[in-house]
Write a protein that binds this DNA or RNA. Sequence first.
DNA 1: GAGGATATTCGACATTGTCGAATTGCATTC
DNA 2: GAATGCAATTCGACAATGTCGAATATCCTC
Lengths: 261, 261
Amino acid sequence: MIQAIDRAAKVLSSLQGARHLGITELSAELGLPVSTVHGIVKSLQGHGLVAQEPGGSRYLLGPALLKLSNVYLDTLDVRARAMRWTVELARRTGLSTRLGVQLFDEVIVIHHNERPDGSQQMPETGLSIPAHASAMGKVLLAYSPEYTSELLGRTLRSLTGATITDPAQLAMQLTSITEHAIATEEDEAVLGESSVAVPVVDTRGTVIAAVAVVVPTSEWPPESSVLNSLRETARNISRELGASTWPPRAPQPAVVAHSEP
Amino acid sequence: MIQAIDRAAKVLSSLQGARHLGITELSAELGLPVSTVHGIVKSLQGHGLVAQEPGGSRYLLGPALLKLSNVYLDTLDVRARAMRWTVELARRTGLSTRLGVQLFDEVIVIHHNERPDGSQQMPETGLSIPAHASAMGKVLLAYSPEYTSELLGRTLRSLTGATITDPAQLAMQLTSITEHAIATEEDEAVLGESSVAVPVVDTRGTVIAAVAVVVPTSEWPPESSVLNSLRETARNISRELGASTWPPRAPQPAVVAHSEP
DNA sequence: GAGGATATTCGACATTGTCGAATTGCATTC
DNA sequence: GAATGCAATTCGACAATGTCGAATATCCTC
């Protein structure tokens, strides 16, 4: 890991947490000399990744990020393929749908369809949710055991009273998820909102994303027709991506007893 | 400018242009040894700014960018303040509206309101348009003479037959824009689409963004009521940001003959 | 199964980024 | 309106760091 780049990324990450920061504040947060931070920030600024708050001398994230992320969304094959199917899913279930990918210990929503009831809703594309508090996150964790083992070691942040913070309990859910290829979450990220998610796989059988429907907790549990539609949506997207089977095979645990002669 | 960060930013920029690239392709594009590029890419990947295309060994932009850009949009004061006014502008004019900021020689759309006619439309937030081919871009250039002089030196890329590529002609438009505080563009970025833009200023009287309405070229020129609504919108946003006067003062050219005794 | 191409690892060198001190600039106070 | 204090910026020397080329591993093609 190249030190300067690592530090630059940490600067971006800090600015992400605390909207506006001065050089001194940044240097305190990162534990680096001010002049070092200054050099990094100016380099980022030179590419529009960081900007000065007009008038002041504090810094914030820059517009280049918006341009980059727009291209990022366009390059995602899953997203392009998924869109027509999730529209249909939203229509059939009357619920809002999400498509998400894993970013370390979080899920990033890469596509969102609003509830088709015409109510005013927030766009959720770009939203990030701690993986352990999200149905999509649980799906993605369940199929990527490498990250999971590490995650279970750390303390799990609680978002609502219902967030699962006990590693053992989460681990249990995850094994159950690989068996049934479906994950749920009740009020664990946002009070009043629950969700169900299933995996999306590509040609190689790898789980690369998750689709979810968001269900108001007042309407929980969802009818089985909702679950069927959700499953069918994931199967359709996966098939378009070249997957031959769905649901995906459960990931092989680190050590298999004796599978080959 | 820190070399490693500069190179990292260039890697991101390359991936932005050509969706998927291998290490060798990247190294060719940047004129750097493969091992150097490899180190940079792996560092970016370690922060989710770059990702591997599943299965292959090629690289593409990463999900962290989406998360960062989402925070970027949230931190923008102008955007939050502008939204309610642009909704009203779209309603009154029946046209789609844009709010944009400058990113070097481009304009990035930071907010977009769809035409209220209920037709299916692309979301344009995150869209980037060469400044010289956009009404918003012309506004922003007109009020930031530093960049402009440099830009006029380069060759201006033509997007449609109507794109202004002659520096002299563009320079003329820019001076006229500072006088009237309004810019137009006819088919210069996209055929069939024209637009009108006005500046948004902050407390210090600096132009920090531009608002525009997009007019189908078939309905060009827009009625004066549209221009009035647009101006009023910019004035309202600017006032909310603490600006005392609107339209903004024309920027002082590099050398003034004799203005102070 | 062999060949070619591409990604990845490794270690030595010197370029490069880092750091602390000095300077400038801004804002607030008296 | 001058003076004080804080924060951003500039500068230069040192050595830690990133860079590069060669060697190795891995993947894909034929």
